[in-house]
Design a protein around this nucleic acid. Structure first.
Length: 196
DNA sequence: TAAACGATTAGCT
DNA sequence: GCTAATCGTTTAT
């Protein structure tokens, strides 16, 4: 991961961008630059939406708990949780405050033009979290200076594909995973064509 | 208080 | 393709 500290070109996304339903926000996140000062970043290639209603896979499906409280926060809030006791996964909270929804950030492609990152891709939510130094203390903080995590729109508009989510048992049939069609940095590519 | 369970990944067959 | 690693959260006694 690069130690580049220069802010990448483009417009940092704030609460306005995230103040929509997660299935609307998620496809728009593909191609955006996820970046942290002094750490690096990359272009998002795969995300998943977790809905506020009728989504049994959401951590908030059974109401607020100690863990998922950040999902009820303002749009643009960070939600981090420990997966399998091993990996810290990064989510971005969407929709209005009080409505529990989020987008799981699953993969990013390192930039190769020196603007951010080092050209190395991080495919898979656990790897991505480790690469960005995602910690549980970030949960509940907003994107921006407080968390040191930024999402930047640099005008890139990649073609976006839609398929089913990964690693869940309930709500597994819902098409809520969004990915960059032309990227190799997408997990479980085999699940996309056949569908099983 | 106890037990079960993951929004995963690496390593081995 | 299959499984161990690993630990905080959740759910059940």
């Amino acid at each position: 991961m690069s130690t580049e500290t220069a802010f990448p070109p483009g417009r940092p996304l704030g609460p306005d961008f995230f103040a929509r339903s997660p299935d609307r926000v998620a496809p728009d996140l593909i191609g955006k630059v996820l970046w942290s000062p002094g750490v690096g970043g990359g272009r998002l290639t795969e995300v998943e939406a977790y809905l506020p209603m009728d989504d049994p896979a959401s951590h908030a499906a059974r109401g607020p708990t100690r863990r998922n409280v950040a999902m009820y926060g303002r749009p643009g809030t960070i939600y981090v949780f420990l997966s399998y006791g091993v990996h810290y996964l990064l989510n971005l909270v969407t929709d209005r405050e009080g409505v529990a929804s989020a987008v799981l950030i699953r993969a990013m492609e390192g930039l190769e033009d020196g603007r951010a990152g080092d050209g190395v891709s991080y495919c898979g939510p656990g790897r991505l979290g480790a690469a960005l130094g995602i910690r549980p203390e970030l949960s509940g903080l907003p994107l921006g200076p407080e968390s040191g995590v930024y999402v930047i729109d640099d005008g890139s508009r990649p073609r976006v594909g839609i398929t089913t989510r990964v690693g869940i048992t309930q709500g597994a049939a819902l098409p809520l995973r969004y990915y960059a069609s032309d990227s190799a940095c997408v997990t479980r590519r085999s699940a996309i064509q056949g569908g099983t």
